[in-house]
Amino acid sequence: METDNKKASLNEHRELAEEVLDIYSLKVFIILDLLLFAIFLGILLHPLLSSLWLNVLLPLLFFTSFTILLQLLDIFHKKS
Rank of each mutant, 00 (worst) to 15 (best):
K7W: 09
E19W: 09
L73A: 02
F62M: 07
T67Q: 05
L60A: 09
I30N: 10
N55K: 15
L16V: 05
D33V: 01
F29N: 15
A17L: 09
L60T: 14
L41E: 11
V20I: 15
A8F: 00
D4G: 00
A8T: 04
L21C: 06
F63P: 03
E12V: 06
R14E: 15
V56C: 00
E15S: 08
L73E: 05
I43L: 15
L44T: 08
Y24R: 13
A17C: 07
N5T: 11
S65L: 12
L45Q: 05
L16A: 13
M1G: 01
D74H: 09
T67D: 02
H46F: 14
L35R: 03
N55P: 01
H46A: 12
L60N: 10
A38D: 12
G42V: 13
F66V: 04
L58G: 00
L10T: 05
L52Y: 08
Q71V: 12
L16C: 03
L41A: 12
E19G: 06
W53M: 05
L70S: 08
L35P: 04
H46D: 10
S51K: 11
L35D: 01
I23H: 07
Q71E: 11
H46W: 13
P59V: 08
L60H: 01
A38M: 12
G42M: 08
I75T: 07
F63Y: 09
L48R: 09
L10W: 13
F66W: 13
K78L: 04
E12W: 07
F37H: 07
H46M: 11
V20G: 04
P47Q: 04
F62T: 01
S25T: 10
S25R: 15
K78V: 07
V28D: 13
F63H: 02
K6I: 12
L70G: 05
A38C: 12
